[in-house]
Simulated assay, not measured.
Amino acid sequence: MTGDAVPRNGPVDPGLQPERTRLAWSRTALAFLANGGLMLHAGHRLDHWAWLTPGAVIIAVSVAVYVASALRFRRVDDAIRSGDPVVGAAPIALTAAAAVVVSLTAAVVVATAH
């Protein structure tokens, strides 16, 4: 057994790294949700569709990020408990891409909607 492997059914990371990561993903999803909600609110108050559509999309992205975080937490926790390597950066890359798209969308909407 190597120094990196955790014995099957053995002790889990005492620093609770997977739980901290899950909380960070949850905060990211909450930030997306708040941004989408604010855009929906502004669109409703201004009666302007340019705020409503991106707001709804951003809220959908927040739900997707939250679900992805729950699934990733389960995979990472299972891998740590079984001593398997933790792989799979696709959810992280997709969340980063979503953050860029959300930011650009908000900037375009603010700059163009009156």
Rank of each mutant, 00 (worst) to 15 (best):
P11V: 12
D13Q: 14
P14F: 12
P14M: 04
G15Q: 12
G15E: 13
Q17R: 14
P18R: 09
E19G: 05
E19M: 13
E19I: 07
T21F: 01
T21P: 02
T21R: 06
R22P: 00
R22H: 05
L23H: 15
L23V: 15
L23P: 08
A24M: 11
A24Q: 15
W25T: 01
W25E: 11
R27T: 12
R27K: 12
T28Y: 12
T28W: 04
A29W: 00
A29C: 00
F32N: 04
F32V: 05
L33A: 12
L33I: 09
A34Y: 10
N35W: 09
N35E: 10
N35L: 11
N35V: 06
G36S: 15
L38H: 01
L38G: 14
L38Y: 08
M39E: 00
M39I: 00
M39K: 03
M39R: 03
L40V: 15
L40K: 15
L40C: 14
H41K: 08
H41W: 14
H41M: 13
G43A: 02
G43C: 09
G43N: 09
G43P: 04
H44S: 10
H44Q: 12
H44I: 05
H44P: 02
R45V: 01
L46S: 08
D47K: 12
D47C: 04
D47I: 06
D47M: 09
H48P: 00
W49C: 03
W49E: 13
W49P: 02
W49L: 14
W49G: 01
W49A: 07
W49Y: 08
A50R: 11
L52M: 09
L52Q: 05
P54V: 06
G55R: 05
A56I: 00
V57T: 08
V57D: 08
I58L: 13
I59D: 12
I59K: 14
V61L: 14
V61W: 15
V61S: 15
S62D: 10
S62W: 00
S62Y: 04
V63R: 04
V63M: 02
V63T: 01
Y66F: 04
V67N: 02
V67A: 06
V67Y: 00
V67K: 00
S69W: 01
R72L: 04
R74P: 08
R75E: 11
V76A: 15
V76R: 13
V76E: 10
D77I: 01
D78T: 03
A79M: 06
A79T: 07
I80M: 15
I80G: 07
I80Y: 08
I80K: 01
R81I: 05
R81N: 11
S82G: 07
S82D: 13
G83M: 03
D84I: 03
D84S: 07
P85M: 14
V87F: 07
V87W: 03
A90H: 04
A90L: 13
P91H: 02
P91N: 03
P91T: 04
I92M: 11
A93G: 02
A93N: 09
